[in-house]
Nucleic acid binder design. Sequence first.
DNA 1: GTGATTGCAAATCTTTTGCACTAAA
DNA 2: TTTAGTGCAAAAGATTTGCAATCAC
Lengths: 146, 146
Amino acid sequence: MQSGKSHLRSPGDILQCLRIAGLRPTRQRVALARLLFGGDFRHITAEGLHGEAAGHGTHVSLATVYNTLHQFTAAGLLQEVVVDAGRSYFDTNVADHHHFFYEDSGRLEDISGQAVTISALPAPPDGAQIARIDVVIRLRGRPSEA
Amino acid sequence: MQSGKSHLRSPGDILQCLRIAGLRPTRQRVALARLLFGGDFRHITAEGLHGEAAGHGTHVSLATVYNTLHQFTAAGLLQEVVVDAGRSYFDTNVADHHHFFYEDSGRLEDISGQAVTISALPAPPDGAQIARIDVVIRLRGRPSEA
DNA sequence: GTGATTGCAAATCTTTTGCACTAAA
DNA sequence: TTTAGTGCAAAAGATTTGCAATCAC
């Protein structure tokens, strides 16, 4: 599995990222980007990020959190991880990798792309092309504390 | 990928299945089981099954469809497939297998377990055990017609 | 200024729940 | 009968949308 290698971005980097993505560095977007990209890789839900922002004294409406998460995802700064119907997780690790999912706790943990080798793979049907391969290892039992 | 091998169950088989699962063979459950298990393997949503039942002249409330899908899943007659946040698919193929997911159309297609070989796999952390491994190959472009 | 962005509240969508009613055993 | 199962309508979550107010440039 992947140690939560940091992708620390300085305040300047964050502004850069947003500008390159064509997103105005508004107060809200910068605040959310700091929370998301300021430290280790993380998996977070809209609700979770919203709460976290509030905890840091930044008021951002939930609708804006949703908008921002989708804009960041479209810009390639985030990746959406689908492991739970009815709840979207966003992953700050956009490298090729996979996940452990603790079904009991809802916790998500990265597995580096190299740690999983898929040696046989069916060809994608006719004109379709592979956008991504997601491997989710669903776990039961004692989740390692986060 | 997996040809939709049928698991045709005769009316008698269906009653058997339900009884073994400890589920009373009510009119609604039998009707839904026929739609689900009467032919090829399929991937269906609650809403979809509800509509299909209505199309066959069987009235079943949506709440009952949800209840039934979950009961069938708990009984091992169905498997839930999570590929789309905010919508649950149920798969009548409960064998070990994986999926192609056409992101454009939402179509889901089986890949037999043997067609995908995962040769390296990280050990599950500490006391956790692997409940299931899901491989989803997300596709873009021309979906083969169903 | 001007157009992009935000906040709020309402709307939407999927799924669950409470409870009186119905049906299987 | 007796208890499981069903239907309905309301509730619960997660997410989206419409639109006036606000902010970045």
